[in-house]
Design a binder for these strands. Structure first.
Lengths: 220, 220
DNA sequence: TGTACATCAGTGAACGCGCGTTCACTGATGTAC
DNA sequence: TGTACATCAGTGAACGCGCGTTCACTGATGTAC
């Protein structure tokens, strides 16, 4: 009875639209309540103004919906990171941009972020092909590029990327949990993490005394 | 009906014993299921072989029990850290021992650890005096001691301790969630974190060529 | 252009379940006399 | 030393609730003729 709206029935051939509404509602509920268990079929139905059994046209059960929300979130994270990485030309700036995008992804929907990584242990017996660990691969790639370009002296990019990821994950989960804590600005903490763990160094080989007039015009 | 055991009724004056059994059962359920919502009065009752309403002699409602479990866990963490810190004479070794104890506390009951810090946001309107942030104060103290003793060059111990805490928290939550991930040894990652973020340095001022016979006897 | 009808996109009622909580109670244990 | 009785430490049945899921159904929409 207490529905959000008297939803208009989809037209013929457009029934699949409801599936994405269901996922969006599940996403919203997960974020609002902070609890995976609050994502119930009845709550989803109330949220979008349908009857609960209508959901079964699109998903076989509740578990599949939560799984789909989490899977979608991992894909979204992957795209967000790729976009951030591709926006910077210099390797270290690229690494930093990727890390910042990671933190922003977490900050935007902290509850969803937490559930993304907390779910694994519950569902342990299901050996997924793990596209979930993807963000780590991007991070290793970005750090390795820094090493290749001579702006990082890391001699164990995988190990160092692990430490960086751990710190990013810690920030993404702890920062929203402790709003009363005297947090420094996000970028301040990020720079502390990177300067401590990425082994950043200025490229020193060229040894040109001073940059001459650049190839590009000074203005524009 | 499916009780763990036909529990013996407590003798007169010993009724309060049940209270600690209830907390222990709640603790166990939280860790086993990984879900705060699975800590139900009926599950607790089944676990220790009593009737569910018996719980009301000791706790006014379900929420209070979960709260007590979390509060107890914070106190336990505090003691664990203090013990670890007091076991080492040198400031940097003390800092490291505290951080390692923190990681071990998380590793021992990862689900409880996660819930400890995830609960805050749900209960936001309740402004606790926050003994919860205690572990951070110990961390700041340990790092400050390193600076005073000349074995850390940190010029912002609070900010650096924040970065270290974030990394420890990230490890404590991510490590149990991704058992398939190629984790380096815990101490390897810890040392990477500390060497990157604690600004550790050997004490250089004294410049004694070689330590003379110590004040204490060599053997006890 | 009109109409019968198949199909699509849902609905409403009902099931059995586990839950938090309330209530009146019970029976062993200790104590006053 | 014996016994009535108060108290302690619980119990069993029941309530109303929200849940996942099943089932038989409905009514608008488009299509074949």
């Amino acid at each position: 009875m207490p529905r959000t709206a008297a939803r208009q029935r989809n037209r013929r051939g457009e029934g699949a639209k409801l599936a994405s509404d269901i996922l969006a509602a599940a996403n919203a509920l997960l974020e609002e309540t902070g609890s995976e268990d609050a994502v119930t079929l009845r709550a989803i139905a109330r949220h979008i103004g349908i009857a609960a059994p209508s959901i079964y046209e699109h998903f076989p059960d509740r578990e599949t919906i939560v799984e789909a929300v989490v899977d979608t979130a991992f894909v979204e994270l992957h795209h967000t990171l790729q976009e951030a990485l591709s926006g910077e030309p210099e390797p270290f700036a690229r690494l930093r941009a990727g890390c910042l995008a990671y933190l922003q992804f977490g900050a935007e929907r902290p509850n969803r972020y937490r559930v993304m990584f907390a779910r694994h242990q519950h569902i342990a017996p299901n050996p997924r092909p793990s596209p979930r660990v993807d963000p780590f691969e991007l991070l290793v790639g970005a750090l390795t590029d820094c090493v290749k370009a001579g702006v990082s002296t890391s001699n164990d990019p995988v190990g160092d990327a692990t430490a960086i990821w751990v710190a990013l994950h810690g920030y993404a989960t702890l920062h929203p949990s402790l709003p009363g804590f005297p947090w420094p600005a996000t970028e301040t903490t990020l720079d502390r993490i990177l300067s401590g763990l990425a082994h950043h160094t200025e490229k020193t080989r060229p040894r040109t005394r001073r940059p001459r007039a650049k190839t590009r015009d000074a203005k524009r």
